[in-house]
């Protein structure tokens, strides 16, 4: 397939005077896992609804699998699975009955329907409870059933809105594992979340939303490069004269900044992993080195830093 799975150009949605999404440009290629990140109300859900053709854009263009979702809603919806935030089911029906209904809406019937339903239930490990009423299901089981519901149509693209919200860490990890396995099968996935550390693990690329605009976009290391200046943050635990130690640390090549965190702890920002050089420098400066830790690039840190800067820029 040559065209990207999702392509949005200057996508804008206004509700009256309120601009929910502004001039969004987005390209997601086949097989990618893309994360839409940002606080609640930043425009993630609106973007998703526009991609699905559930809401009409005010301006701009969308192509999903090469089709315009407002012009070809049926073709798009037949190929794209959507897992809404807080997915709902008919509580008085069983899991299997719920799935069968959706399968029928997708034009399946007879043997094929049963096959697909079993397949989907198997995929999310719910076969054991398939004939229980969904009303008895826990939050995690419902979320998995939601995923089964999406898998029924064997989608080329799955869009998930806050898939891990309301799940405890264990369940969230399990669910992210499922997402990862879908990626292995070559399904393109777009997901939105405000829980950055969870999403970081599964996303190939992320887009950061802020007040309806996608302000940053790229792989996590890319963003770290952009926002944190490509910094490796190294924590140093050493005793000795603070001034001497700080000077020695600054002399190490590729080190950009040194902050004193506590009386015997320092934080070093460097362009590469210079732990060995730092160890040498501390010893040469007559310090007693107790520990060196490298902090991994963290989406949360990127996010916090970026918006701190944005706020500062606004205040100035």
């Amino acid at each position: 397939m040559d065209h990207p799975v999702i392509e949005a150009q200057n996508l804008t949605k206004q509700y009256g005077n309120f601009t929910a999404v502004k001039d969004l440009n987005l390209i997601v290629s086949a097989g990618e896992v893309f994360g839409l990140l940002g606080p609640n109300g930043a425009g993630k859900t609106t973007t998703i609804l526009m991609l699905l053709g559930l809401t009409e854009p005010t301006r701009g263009q969308v192509r999903v699998l090469g089709l315009d979702p407002t012009r070809y809603p049926l073709s798009v919806k037949a190929r794209v699975g959507y897992l809404p935030d807080q997915v709902g089911f008919y509580d008085d029906l069983t899991a299997r009955e719920n799935l069968s209904y959706i399968a029928r809406l997708n034009g399946l019937s007879g043997k094929e329907l049963n096959l697909r339903v079993e397949e989907a239930l198997e995929h999310v490990h719910l076969r054991r409870v398939a004939d229980q009423r969904v009303g008895t299901f826990s939050r995690g089981m419902r979320q998995r059933l939601g995923l089964a519901d999406v898998l029924l149509k064997r989608p080329q693209l799955i869009i998930m809105d806050e898939p891990t919200q309301g799940l405890d860490p264990e369940l969230a990890r399990e669910f992210l594992g499922l997402i990862h396995s879908l990626k292995q099968e070559g399904i393109t996935i777009l997901l939105s979340s405000h829980l950055l550390h969870q999403v970081q693990e599964v996303c190939d690329r992320v887009g950061l939303f802020h007040r309806g605009q996608m302000v940053l976009e790229g792989t996590v290391p890319d963003l770290a490069q952009k926002v944190l200046g490509g910094a490796y943050v190294i924590g140093v635990h050493a005793e000795g004269s603070p001034e001497e130690l700080q000077n020695a640390l600054r002399m190490v090549s590729q080190v950009r900044a040194v902050h004193s965190v506590a009386s015997d702890r320092y934080q070093v920002e460097a362009q590469s992993d210079v732990r060995a050089e730092i160890a040498q420098a501390v010893v040469q400066a007559g310090g007693r080195l107790f520990g060196l830790t490298i902090q991994h690039q963290n989406l949360e840190e990127i996010y916090r830093r970026y918006f701190e800067e944005a706020k500062d820029a606004q205040a100035a």
Binding site: L54, G81, G88, F89, I102, L105, N106
Partner: peptide, 14 residues
């Protein structure tokens, strides 16, 4: 209210 509507309307039906 059961939040089934968005799921149904995401299926290929009008």
């Amino acid at each position: 209210n059961r939040r089934t509507l968005s799921r149904i309307l995401a299926q290929p039906v009008y």
